[in-house]
Design a protein around this nucleic acid. Sequence first.
DNA 1: GTAAAAAGGCAACATAGTTGCAAAATATTC
DNA 2: GAATATTTTGCAACTATGTTGCCTTTTTAC
Lengths: 149, 149
Amino acid sequence: MSNKTIEDIENRIASLLKRSDLSVTESRRKILHLFLEQPGALAHGDIERKAGEKFDRVTVYRTLQAFVDKGIIHTIPTADNSIRYALCKDDCSAGHHHDHHVHFVCSICNNTYCLDDVVTPEIKLPKGYHAEQVEVVVEGVCKNCKGRE
Amino acid sequence: MSNKTIEDIENRIASLLKRSDLSVTESRRKILHLFLEQPGALAHGDIERKAGEKFDRVTVYRTLQAFVDKGIIHTIPTADNSIRYALCKDDCSAGHHHDHHVHFVCSICNNTYCLDDVVTPEIKLPKGYHAEQVEVVVEGVCKNCKGRE
DNA sequence: GTAAAAAGGCAACATAGTTGCAAAATATTC
DNA sequence: GAATATTTTGCAACTATGTTGCCTTTTTAC
């Protein structure tokens, strides 16, 4: 990876933080970096393991909370009760997530992916129920694990 | 409620446990009772509060785990990272859940319902992904809270 | 560069979940 | 229905996860 590219990423991170009214600190840059350098979602534990040597546990919690509040990342509910986080697309903003894509959890590698191109379907509810948000999580075998089973 | 009805429920509970190769104990009867006497799902915390005075925390954990293993109840993933449990329909069996209905979480009363008549839709995944299970959780306003807002 | 504001680190705490083991309850056998 | 084998329970101790208050450090604004 060239220096140019590294600089680009750093600039992207800084502008993302500034746009969100967050001061640019080392922990926030580091954690955003983790999200940008890989395609899938990260569980809190992953982040703590990867950033936890340098930063306090509390800082990780507060950083993730700030990112969610500002619409930089969103949470993904999963059956195993471990919150996962993934970067939002650009149309999310502070206090207002537009997170209408399907999430995919691989049962082999345990990675979580945002399938940005797969929109959540309309669900016909029984009379009296009113839907505000629909979460779809698909479990199965991902692209990378298929064939390697 | 007549004695007849109470006896009926107790019999139903005992036969459900025996069918699942679980011995009939006080804690299991009590916790099953909690599920049968109300329509929605229960969070672990609810169960511990309602059964926890009589039984140890550990017993509640182990009882719920046993029920999930035997296909008596199933878990519902939610965004707030609190596992909820609900009774399975009769076609679930040990180690094999057939849980293809949509779940509904009310944002007002915070109750969770299994919409047994609403089946999870087919999701068209990108090439290379293979779906094994689809979880749909709808958040909104439930039948009972509608109009009372 | 300095002052104000924001974020981080630490400690202490609260909640959630797990494990091993001895005691108690349940099931089984005769 | 009593004795034995099996299962389940409660307890204690532990790990993991998440939160709060306060003081120090870093960042920002001027």
